[in-house]
Nucleic acid binder design. Sequence first.
DNA 1: CCCGTCGTTATTTTT
DNA 2: TAACGACGGG
Length: 790
Amino acid sequence: MEESVGAVLDGMEQLSDEARSYLSVLNSEQLEAVVHEGSPLLILAGAGSGKTRVITTKIAYLIGERGIDPHQILAVTFTKKAANEMQQRAVSLEPRAQYSQIRTFHSFGAWFLRLYAEYAGIDPNFTVYDDDDTVSLLQKACPKLTKQQTNHFIHEISLAKDYCYTSSSQELDEIDSDPEFRIVYEAYEKRLRQTGNVDFGDLIMLPYLVLRDVEYVRQKLLARFKVIMVDEYQDSNVAQFLLLQQLSGVQEGFAACSANPDGIYVCVVGDDDQSIYKFRGAEIKNILNFKDRFPGTKIIRLEKNYRSTAEILGIADNVVRHNHGRLGKTLHAEKGNGKQPVLAFLPNQDEEADFCGDLIKLSHEKMGIPYGDWAILYRTNAQSLTFESNFLHRKIPYQIVGSLKFYEREEIKDMLAFLSLIANPRDEVAFRRIVNKPARGIGATTQEKIIDRSRLALLADESSADGAAPAEGAAPASFNLVQTSRAMLNELSKKAREGMTAFIEVFDEIEKKLAAPGDGIPGSSPENLPGEVPEKLSALIELIAEKSGLKEYHASQDEIAGSQKVANLQELANSAVPYDLSRNGLLEFLDHIELDRTIETEDGEEDSDRVTLITLHNTKGLEFSRVIMTGMELGLFPRADKNEEEMEEERRLCYVGITRAKDELYLTSCAMRRMYGRTDYMAASPFLIEIGKENVKVLGHPPANFRASTSRNGDYGARGLSHPDTESDPIKRKYSRGKRLYHDDWGYGVIVKTSESDDGEYCISVQFENGGVKRFLPKYQEKSLMITDD
DNA sequence: CCCGTCGTTATTTTT
DNA sequence: TAACGACGGG
């Protein structure tokens, strides 16, 4: 294969030396994908097949060798992390790639909307509401709704936007035919426009609507981007598909195809077997039907896996091949053979944690395997608890990925609310959050009064506006919660007035700082002196923390709860260092924060050697040398209530988990599990049966459904040669002659002799599969030994 | 406004 | 089980 790559490259005479060098490291399919042009392209990239390398090389190649202007390239991903990595790797191959738009879908949407806000009927200074904020807003917009109803409707609204259904769309009934839904959706939209905010769904839906309906904008965009690439395409939702369709001009024949090879080139990369976000709106049909929606599509499969051993890929395939709706792919392990995966059946979750702890700790102590090599995967966050307490107790260092989120922390949300209110003084949710924090005596009643008055002012402005008024939805400047508060001071109660005066003072001081970056002192020169170091946005955050009382407030919380709130505030300030101290800098920063919830692991101990505890969903895109997939039980993974379609998604999730492992894979399954206060007997996960017992080393006692599934079941439940049921010592009973066992250091063996040591301790001799006979005192080896039959 | 108690309810979650 | 939200008393 590699010869043919060389031959292809030799045939490409005008290649630059750089290109020749970055192309020569590709395999033939990767190369084909990189140099392909002239029609839409779907790259089906299996796990670990080097897809990021292909995309980034393709960007470099298009710029360096095909004369594409980097400004004309748009590459979108789903996570900021992926976007950053793509950007970085593309630039390292081709510096001009820095001028390309390499962004997340949502940040592209934000970029677009800031340019064309007027066409979308929104304020160009909009800030983005996260899910919590939208719930707060709807609660205020429709106070009659119970909290539960509010959550429910917010979910449905977000779902509707995933399909680009507006509150007046006919198809809205598909989401919820209750007529109240439409009314609530409408009220929510109205309020959202009044506050000058957008939600995540808007960042996709509004650009789509503008492109669809505004000819001028569509022409501009069609002329702007000539190459569009989408990564992780299997995770795209309908709205993102519609947006891509608009950008590609496929309906009007601007897309590259055999009839028009110079059209807009669309290249999507993904893996239908790794589509695991249906519950969040991802539409696997997007990738399954891509070739129908983009006529003339070329499909290239990347099936060479450079990550995992053949054994690991083999069982991954055993699982995923049970799915029906697939484009089909068979991964080949370039790494060759490795260790056989281990499947351990354990009595309960405590022993499961012990098993994992033993495995990790012993391999660390005896073989120097770093803790960082290990990842423990589970289906639900709640499962992490047992591992945490176990590891804490045994001093095994670990990190939990994705549970406590930086941006969801109280102190961070407080600070962001303050910043949002400065950026957008109509932001009602932000106003409510910080106007009385720390407590200033501005209670709910006062807040209500001020917001009602502001909205009245807005409505009055709207009704008096003539035809020349700003585009519909863009509210006039008089809607300003802080200004309204100031104007209403003497209508407030004494306590509220004092508190509000203090709050306004703080706010004014901050505004001044923003207007005159030289310093915060009123009346000083606003000009920047030559040679003066321009201040950073971080200075603003530090000032707010100080003056607003938030720092003091959270410091006292830290003392009580031993938390890190003040440190987190500082961390947030640090992350603002790259931004200018200006309104524009502030908007950029808020976009960055709001659209990138994966804040760089702020612990600072990130480099230290630790086991990773992580949900299966969170592992996508990651890899670990040694992986333990835990809780492989029916009812937990997969959950019991799955229909066939959902079952396929669970199966893909299992596939994702397995293919994270590079060298070693362990699966654990418990006979009993405590869940929701009850202890249930668990059956083995059907995925374990699909894997096949002949493909793994089985330890422990499999549940009946697993035993029944195997052809070779004589070994399980077989009794040892001598079995003193009369033996009263549990240790002696457990480690009796003839028992098979597994020792973490020595592997598999059978107890050939039992005896007593000099000081009268029970002692066993074990014949190991590959090695001699060892003598143990089982009492002291409980952690390393596991009986594999009974 | 803070604290305790009772009742409810339990997936997965980029942006 | 345990964690979180709602509610009521001080």
